[in-house]
């Protein structure tokens, strides 16, 4: 069973057991434009919620991606190195950034579900 959550920083998190896969949302990739480079965290890195976890770069700017949850990085999406545009093409699927083994499920409480996130971005425009 998986569960999808969203942060105010436009990241999505898919929970499966104690593993959280995360990436940036469709809305975020639209705002960034064509992604030309993604810098991913190292496998084994220990991140706290809100830490700089990755960097996503468009033609004109670099943007930080924050760790949505505290935990250890257990996998990263190396395919983005050669195909950064996957983030634009399939932000919520093949464009995932990394997987975390998360340590504090309480952190999930503050996140939005899909309906709440949809409402959140509608209010931004």
């Amino acid at each position: 069973m998986s569960d999808l959550k969203f942060t105010k920083d436009h990241e999505w998190v898919r929970i499966e057991g104690d593993t959280a896969t995360f990436g940036i949302t469709v809305y975020a990739q639209e705002q960034l434009g064509d992604v030309v480079f993604v810098e991913l965290p190292g496998v084994g890195a220990e991140l706290s919620q809100g830490d700089d976890a990755a960097v996503v770069e468009s033609v004109k700017a670099a943007s930080e991606v924050y760790a949505p949850l505290s935990g250890e990085v257990v996998a990263v999406n190396d395919a983005l190195e050669d195909a950064p545009a996957t983030v634009n093409e399939d932000a919520m699927g093949d464009g995932w950034f990394a997987k975390l083994k998360f340590s504090d499920s309480g952190e999930l409480e503050e996140m939005m579900d899909e309906a709440a996130y949809t409402k959140f971005i509608a209010e931004l425009d």
Binding site: G33, D34, V36, S58, V59, K60
Partner: peptide, 12 residues
């Protein structure tokens, strides 16, 4: 205008 709907890459 920093970009139009075509986007920076497309416009370039």
């Amino acid at each position: 205008p920093v970009q139009y709907p075509l986007g920076v890459m497309g416009e370039h």
